[in-house]
Computed example of a mutant assay.
Amino acid sequence: MSEKQKTHFGYQQVDTEAKAGMVADVFHSVAARYDLMNDLMSGGVHRIWKRFTIELSGVRKGHSVLDIAGGTGDLAAKFSRIVGDDGRVVLADINDSMLKVGRDKLLDTGHQGNIEFVQADAQFLPFPDDSFDCITIAFGLRNVTAKETALRSMLRVLKPGGRLLVLEFSKPENELLSKAYDTYSFRLLPLMGQLVAGDSESYQYLAESIRMHPDQDTLKDMMEDAGFARVEYHNMTGGIVALHKGIKA
């Protein structure tokens, strides 16, 4: 019998087929306090990162947008207003707890009609070819087991000329910033998770998953290998976060 394939779950080596379930457990645990923790962890700066993502998206009235790993719906809410009644926004997440929190939040704030909610795996998107003008994935790609498979799946469902935007934690440009960021991530973040969400282990995993994610140039190469054209990235907050953009030719 062949040996099972391995992948990383944070710093652990786990069976590839087990990773999705382990990531799911993390997000089941943090879903209810996800928005609060985002604000606390980033000092609210995640809203600026997301605003820049929307500015670079080129989304207009009547467009179709897919927000993968859309979680609690920050991007979907903004896209819903931009595309209007003639447009379409699909908030997709593999995790049903996150999807439920996002759906409840958006419906409570009056976002409905042009938003659909779909439980979907980024690696195997359940949409026809050439379906969307824009795809976003914010702080979700690092949790995907096979990132190359997911990127090819995103390319398939984009319309020709459509854009993919990947907003993700990345590698700080400055060594001093990198050391300070490590101290924050591995000491304060799990403590904050314990105090606010009653879960230090999930936030320890999230810190580790950031370190295991490809750096800016590696992710750029991966997007080009998947078939995206004109790939570029923009560092924000000293490279702690990077926004990658690619076009379907």
Rank of each mutant, 00 (worst) to 15 (best):
E3A: 14
K4N: 11
K6T: 12
T7H: 05
T7Q: 02
G10N: 06
G10E: 02
A18N: 14
A20Y: 02
M22C: 05
M22N: 05
M22S: 05
M22T: 03
A24L: 13
D25Q: 13
A31W: 05
A32W: 09
A32I: 09
Y34K: 12
Y34A: 01
D35R: 04
G44A: 07
R47F: 13
I48N: 10
I48M: 13
W49E: 07
W49D: 05
K50G: 05
F52E: 07
I54Y: 00
I54F: 03
V59T: 08
G62L: 08
H63L: 04
S64P: 07
D67H: 02
I68R: 01
I68T: 04
G70D: 01
G71E: 01
T72W: 02
L75Y: 04
A76S: 15
A76N: 09
K78A: 15
F79K: 05
S80Q: 05
S80K: 06
G84I: 09
D86Q: 15
G87T: 11
D93A: 08
D93T: 07
I94P: 00
S97F: 10
S97K: 15
M98Q: 06
K100H: 13
K100Q: 15
V101F: 04
D104V: 11
K105T: 10
D108N: 15
Q119V: 07
A120K: 02
A120L: 02
D121V: 04
D121H: 06
A122Q: 08
F124L: 11
L125C: 10
D129P: 03
D133T: 09
C134F: 06
F139N: 04
N143K: 06
V144Y: 03
V144I: 12
V144T: 08
K147P: 11
E148C: 10
E148K: 15
T149P: 04
L151H: 01
R152D: 10
M154T: 03
L155P: 02
R156L: 14
L158T: 03
P160K: 13
R163W: 08
L165M: 11
L165H: 04
V166R: 00
V166I: 13
V166W: 04
L167E: 00
L167Y: 01
F169K: 09
P172L: 02
E173T: 12
L177D: 09
K179C: 13
Y181R: 05
Y181H: 09
F186V: 07
L189I: 15
L189M: 15
P190I: 01
L191S: 11
M192Q: 06
Q194C: 11
Q194I: 04
L195F: 10
V196R: 00
V196M: 06
V196S: 01
G198P: 10
E201H: 10
S202R: 01
S202L: 05
L206N: 06
A207M: 00
A207F: 00
E208F: 02
S209H: 06
S209V: 03
I210G: 09
I210N: 10
H213T: 15
H213E: 11
D217Q: 14
D217A: 14
T218D: 13
M222W: 08
M222R: 10
E224G: 08
D225N: 13
D225F: 11
R230L: 12
Y233H: 11
T237W: 12
T237K: 11
G238A: 08
G238S: 08
G239P: 01
V241N: 01
A242K: 00
A242V: 05
A242D: 02
H244F: 02
K245Q: 12
G246K: 03
K248D: 02
